[in-house]
Amino acid sequence: MTITTEKPLVKIEGLHKYYGQHHVLRGIDLEVNQGEVSVVIGPSGSGKSTMLRCVNLLETISAGRIYVGGDLIGYREVNGRLHDLKTKEIAAQRREIGMVFQRFNLFPHKTALQNIMEAPVQVKGQSKDVARKRAYELLDRVGLADRAGHYPSQLSGGQQQRVAIARALAMEPELMLFDEPTSALDPELVGDVLNVMKDLAKSGMTMIVVTHEIGFAREVGDRLTFMDGGVVVESGDPREVLSNPQHARTKEFLSRVL
């Protein structure tokens, strides 16, 4: 994949989010180029997960625009007026965006293999044979080829999260969203998941990663964004932001997590 700096794959413009009177996101602007790994950090309650969830419409967008691959997410704009997309159209947009959750959210009544095959067969209409072959390849890629027949409850947290990554990849998305993918894991299991994410980044996948793993941000991130209080405080090259933060709030946060 080639990196084109002129046309970002993801463009978030002036994003606001209200829960009732509670103003969670207060004008977020963020761009992610094709093939880039954009890492978002910040204290809990800073709105970083909410922003991520807006990108594939798990949260409605109160104000602002999000574009993925040039398409406006959630709306159709006709003569300057926004129209809600139909459920089916939203589902079609989500197919291009893979999502990995903090709590994995694997389907507990399906095996690892069935979890991965579900969407390609049911949504894309792939034949079971094709989907199964691809699912085995993906399981192999995340290092779990021998766990195909296991149910999620028979897997460790780290293994579940790797199956969840494989499940998202099975839809061949152009963008992957990671919502604190290692926060629910025992410390010794974090490494396996981060390694899978590193490989994915190397393969050229465009990723937005909300995380507390500063080491991952430094090593793999192309861009680091620090959010607090529903706004972007600081954004730039991860190594620069981490070694030489410009804002007092960033310095304070980093001094507590590093």
Partner: peptide, 10 residues
């Protein structure tokens, strides 16, 4: 949410 994120219909 997981099923929605995979693009499955209602």
């Amino acid at each position: 949410e997981a099923a929605e994120a995979l693009g499955m219909g209602k």
